[in-house]
Amino acid sequence: MDVLDRPEGFLMVAAVLFVIGVVGFILRRNLIVLFMCVELMLNAVNLTLMAVARYVGASMEGQIMVFLVMAVAAAETAVGLAVVIAIYRKRATVDVDDMTVMNG
């Protein structure tokens, strides 16, 4: 049987992408890279939703949700980059370790 006939392959790739996103988010220190990691996680979810909608659920809900998740991700990135630019203007850094005005 071809791998494209079953959802497992897609789900596996999605899970790997999601874990890469999580690990990257925890380990990396550059703000732009952190946003990319979140994008990776969201796209892993998108892939999962597509696979489930196609092979398991047999409903359109998952596929429609992919579009909405894309819109949400775009809005989030737009706000995020605006904040990063505002911070860069003030401090000329995009390193998370420098975000210590408050002792957190």
Binding site: F25, L31, T48
Partner: peptide, 28 residues
């Protein structure tokens, strides 16, 4: 910035959880 980063991270995890529910039951 801190709210946005943790918020987006948490939302992605939550959404992956919802996608898992979708996978297990075929409905959301």
């Amino acid at each position: 910035l801190k709210y946005l980063l943790t918020g987006a991270f948490a939302s992605s995890i939550l959404l992956y959880g919802f996608a898992m529910v979708y996978l297990a039951t075929g409905t959301v």
